[in-house]
């Protein structure tokens, strides 16, 4: 049973997950982060669409694009969830990239039949904010931060 909003007010859940650069782990990480969101009564659409899809995109980008599925590189996911918002940092060990580079309108009729190019579009559409910054310290890499306000 989801807790009432009143009881949620002082509650904050933080977790850290580290995975190899293997897409087989994505679904489990999504579930680990979705669970506290459900406990904190995030609404059904956020639990079924916004959170899992945006997270899946951020983690798969880290594994496939930044880390190039290199078995020697890891992906670090940190999530903070409270009654106000979900903040997730997905850190890779890849080369720096510009998250605003090569943005293509996935809904443009010229692009609609493309197989790729919807990942970042969906992250931005399903989250309130998507940011990228350099990881501090070792290992070097990128951090993509997803922020979603509870509804």
């Amino acid at each position: 049973m989801a807790a009432s909003p009143t009881n949620d007010a002082g509650l904050r859940v933080s977790l850290e997950v580290e995975i190899p650069s293997d897409v087989a782990y994505i679904e489990r990480v999504v579930e680990l982060i979705r669970h506290p969101c459900a406990e904190l009564a995030y609404n059904a659409h956020q639990l079924a669409l916004n959170v899992p899809v945006a997270l899946s995109e951020a983690i798969s980008n880290a594994i496939l694009r930044a880390n190039n599925e290199d078995p020697g590189k890891r992906v670090f996911v940190r999530a903070d969830v409270d009654a106000l918002r979900l903040v997730v940092d997905v850190q890779d060990e890849g080369e720096p990239f510009d998250i605003d580079d090569n943005i293509r309108d996935a809904t443009d009729p010229d692009n609609i039949e493309r197989e790729d190019g919807r990942g970042l579009f969906l992250m931005r559409a399903l989250m309130d904010r998507v940011e990228r910054f350099d990881a501090n310290g070792a290992p070097a890499g990128n951090v993509v931060r997803l922020i979603l306000t509870r509804a």
Binding site: A48, P52, V53, E57, S60, I112, D116, G117, G119
Partner: peptide
Amino acid sequence: GYIDSSGLGVLV
């Protein structure tokens, strides 16, 4: 449950 951009890409 849910479909990500890769799943959508495969359908396309």
